[in-house]
């Protein structure tokens, strides 16, 4: 479904990605784990075209999407819950959800997905007419995922959904990711919380300073020395 081949991305002269290759197949949950500054967010921004890769190739459903404008990539079926949630602060929760569905023309489908999203996130429904900026961090994260789902994406990109949340909320968010997975949405999940991510993922990639250093099934990664030492804090 999604394939990155030897992708290099720069911020000016700073090399953030130095040859990232990874693949997400339909129906999978793939985790991309790495510490702060490794290049996870840059990878996602490059996929959706906010950043243009200097070198390499990105394919989605067999079509090249590197160099394509962000709004067109999104219309092709990739939605994201970005790092830091990025809720529109001065718009209501409902308006945020409507914007998630901006690219869609099927009003009936949108309404059905709204109901589906409310079932996944009852809290979001309770806050429907509040301004996005007034929600708590956890509620904003739920809204960010809900908003992305409103696009009915084929591929959902999640950038550190657990960041800054209490353990109970992290548990709740990952529970939701499980149910989204069970409904058949393909997910690329970026996390620093390697343990949680690899528990929901089928496969995982480990990124360090802009390079993929390891990839395997999630179970194998959880048992690997590198992951246990560097990301799970075990000896």
């Amino acid at each position: 479904m999604l394939e990155l081949r030897d992708v290099h991305t720069y911020y000016g002269r700073i090399r953030a990605l130095r040859g990232v290759s990874l693949e997400v197949k339909a129906g999978e949950v793939v985790a991309l784990i790495g510490s702060n500054g490794a290049g996870k967010t840059t990878t996602l921004k490059t996929i959706v075209g906010i950043l243009k890769p200097q070198r390499g190739e990105i394919q989605f459903e067999g079509k090249r999407i590197d160099g394509v404008a962000t709004d067109r990539i999104v219309r092709m079926g990739i939605a994201q819950a970005p790092e830091g949630r990025r809720i529109f602060p001065r718009m209501t929760v409902l308006e945020n959800l409507e914007l998630g569905a901006f690219a869609r023309e099927d009003a009936l489908g949108v309404r059905a997905d709204m109901e589906r999203v409310f079932r996944l996130f009852p809290r979001v429904k309770e806050r429907l007419h509040q301004k996005g900026g007034t929600l708590s961090g956890g509620e904003q994260q739920m809204l960010a995922i809900a908003r992305a789902l409103m696009a009915r994406p084929q591929l959902l990109l999640l950038d550190e959904p657990s960041m800054g949340l209490s353990p109970i909320l992290v548990e709740a968010i990952f529970e939701t990711i499980r149910s989204i997975r069970s409904q058949g949405t393909t997910i690329l999940l970026v996390e620093q919380n390697a343990r949680m991510a690899l528990r929901v993922a089928n496969r995982g990639y480990v990124i360090q300073t802009g390079r993929i250093v390891l990839h395997d099934t999630a179970d194998a990664l959880l048992k690997s020395d590198l992951v246990r030492k560097s990301y799970l804090g075990e000896k």
Partner: peptide, 23 residues
């Protein structure tokens, strides 16, 4: 719909693009 997209663009251009809005 377009008015809301306009406000979204004013509040956060990058995220607006990620909603499929042609900024």
């Amino acid at each position: 719909r377009w008015g809301k997209a306009m406000r979204a663009t004013a509040q956060d251009r990058e995220t607006a693009a990620a909603m499929g809005i042609n900024v």
